[in-house]
């Protein structure tokens, strides 16, 4: 199924219907008539998109979708390809399938997902893989792969899964993290791992850590090489220095259980 944006929304468009689970078993007419919310106004999908049934199960969407929210919400299967940039809450509550965005994404990419994979080729906004405000739990599984930079609070409350940031991440990366793995191939922002309970935050750069983190040692963590090889296969360029290098290991946050770790490339 191909969707092409023909009318730019003037306010955010809530388009959770753009999802393989919602399209499967429905005719082109039925899909075209599905409801999207333009602000507080109910509209049909066809009011904003030209739909073409190409007979494929993959949903391909193009146009400037930076104001189109909630694409792939609660997705359990299939694939969505977004050719361009996309709005907030992409793949919220997703449990399976794959979403690929060739451009940038706004805030809340993969909010509270528990499975599947989201790949953003460009940059992402704030709160990648986080929980909504008021919830203490972010993603509980799956993978969020950002090839560019991400803003603040990556993996807020993360409990399981993998988040990879190819560039830099903003402040409070891994804040309130319960478990899981965040890999930042660039620079971490301020206060990474604040209030983290368990889990791993990794960076190829040095970082200023909170005083509630304690230095353990500098060593070669075998598991990290396994992860770096894994993400290399996802299309990241990983220098041999990182694959074979040593990492500083820090434990924290001692205000919590002190079972979290931050690994920083040393040499």
């Amino acid at each position: 199924m191909k969707l092409s944006l023909h009318t730019l929304p003037t306010v955010p468009l809530e388009a959770e219907v753009i999802c393989p689970d919602k399209f499967i078993g429905n005719s082109l007419d039925a899909i075209s008539a599905m409801t999207v919310m333009h602000g507080n106004q109910a509209c049909s999908l066809a009011d904003f998109f030209t739909l073409t049934d190409d007979g494929l199960e993959t949903i391909e969407v193009d146009g400037d979708l930076s104001k189109v929210k909630l694409i792939g919400s609660e997705m359990t299967q299939g694939k969505i390809i977004i050719k361009g940039s996309v709005g907030a809450h992409l793949g919220a509550l997703m449990t399976g399938g794959e979403i690929l965005v060739t451009g940038n994404a706004e805030d809340w990419v993969g909010r509270e997902i528990s499975g599947g994979r989201i790949v953003i080729k460009g940059d992402a906004g704030h709160l990648v893989g986080s929980g909504v405000r008021g919830s203490d739990t972010g993603i509980q599984g799956g993978e969020i792969i950002i090839h560019g930079n991400a803003k603040n609070e990556v993996g807020n409350g993360m409990r399981r899964g993998l988040i990879v940031i190819g560039g830099n991440s903003g402040d409070f990366t891994g804040v309130n993290m319960k478990a899981g793995t965040i890999m930042v191939l660039g620079q971490l922002g301020q206060r990474p791992g604040a209030s983290m309970v368990r889990g791993t935050i990794f960076s190829t750069q040095s970082a200023q850590l909170l005083p509630t983190f304690t230095y353990n040692t500098t060593y070669k963590p075998t598991f990290l090489k396994r992860y770096l090889i894994y993400i290399k296969k996802l299309g990241f360029t990983i220098d041999d220095a990182y694959l074979n290098g040593k990492y500083q290991s820090w434990s924290g946050d001692s205000l919590e259980l002190n079972k979290g770790e931050i690994l920083l490339f040393a040499e």
């Binding site: 399981r160 368990r198 060593y219 070669k220 963590p221 396994r226 894994y230 079972k259």
Partner: peptide, 21 residues
């Protein structure tokens, strides 16, 4: 501590030389 990579559950067991994975 454990790590889940894809469907693969892995364990990191601290040892005197580093960790057994």
């Amino acid at each position: 501590s454990s790590k889940l990579l894809g469907d693969q559950r892995l364990w990191r067991i601290p040892v005197m030389e580093g960790e057994f994975f």
